[in-house]
């Protein structure tokens, strides 16, 4: 799995077969390889510099700082926290559904295999925003369970919408990991009288677990970055709140850069360590196998 592989010999050595498709950790590799000083750089470009420039025109630097300080607690506790909650639930549903969809992709039954393929292709290649709109507009605002109506909050609908592409992409990771286990493992287990289901759940999937973690985390970071999409559907989260805060402060253009700059920084600060960890785990598991 190590991509930057340098052979120090010209002798014909057998390299382990490497994944040939597109880089499944592309996003984490891009983000995780940034040096740490990118964070203060973003802060400088989006917060300090505009503040200083604007200070000579409309607002004083002090005034902008005061406004930001006033809104920050709300932006974090009501805003970004919501993005994190949405990302957790999306990952939870996406992982469970993706696992079974991935199993469907390697099913013995050609009907299940074909259906799973179709679902994967459909949701992997559709624009996320379109999926979000469809789910938001088709899901009822309340569901009836045993005679009682339970309201489905908007953010929960957004979770379902985001879960669909995550499910499809994770299904492909599950399928790839299952198929990367040598078929000899199946034969050995079959000769010990394990049933197909036992082999999958007790022998094959546990072996896949480690190699699925890095790409799984990669998708988590990508999806977390995409959670502000739900602001277009009116769900309260960081970007929605930032716009409302700016409106409350009179919609002054001087506030654009500080507010959205803050959003950029907090997403970076959250996803950057995840990307670093993803790359570390990839390296670690590549050695141990």
């Amino acid at each position: 799995m190590t991509r930057s592989f340098n052979t120090s010999t010209d002798l014909p050595v057998t390299l382990e077969p490497r994944y040939q498709g597109p880089d499944e950790l592309g996003f984490s590799r891009w983000l995780g390889r940034m040096p740490v000083w990118v964070l203060p750089l973003i802060a400088a470009v989006f917060l300090i510099w505009p503040t200083v420039v604007e200070a000579q025109t409309v607002y004083s630097a002090q005034k902008i700082m005061d406004i930001m300080a006033k809104w920050l607690p709300l932006l974090i506790t009501q805003g970004f926290l919501m993005n994190v909650i949405i990302s957790f639930f999306t990952m939870l549903f996406g992982t469970i559904a993706g696992l079974f969809l991935g199993l469907g992709r390697v099913s013995d039954n050609s009907g299940i295999r074909g259906f799973s393929w179709l679902v994967v292709q459909l949701f992997r290649n559709s624009p996320w925003l379109v999926l979000l709109f469809i789910v938001m507009l088709t899901l009822p605002f309340e569901i009836r369970i045993a005679g009682t109506y339970i309201a489905v909050p908007d953010w929960m609908k957004a979770v379902f919408g985001l879960s669909l592409p995550i499910m499809a992409n994770l299904a492909e990771i599950v399928r790839g990991a299952i198929q990367s286990v040598p078929s000899a493992q199946w034969e050995a287990a079959e000769s010990l009288a394990f049933s197909k289901r036992q082999i999958m759940w007790q022998i094959i999937l546990p072996q896949c677990f480690k190699r699925m973690i890095p790409p799984w985390m990669n998708w988590y970071a990508i999806m977390t970055m995409a959670t502000p999409l739900v602001s277009l559907l009116g769900v309260t989260e960081l970007v929605t709140l930032s716009r409302q805060a700016m409106e409350a402060e009179g919609n002054n253009p001087s506030l654009l850069m500080p507010f959205f700059g803050f959003a950029l920084i907090i997403f970076f600060a959250y996803c950057y360590p995840i990307a670093r960890l993803t790359l570390r785990l990839e390296k670690k598991y590549a050695v141990k196998g």
Partner: peptide, 20 residues
């Protein structure tokens, strides 16, 4: 087949132990 395989053990060229 599972009943049959309980009676017949098999050892392979490549051992095929469960690595985990």
């Amino acid at each position: 087949k599972l009943e049959l395989r309980k009676k017949v053990g098999m050892v392979f060229q490549q051992y095929n132990l469960f690595p985990h």
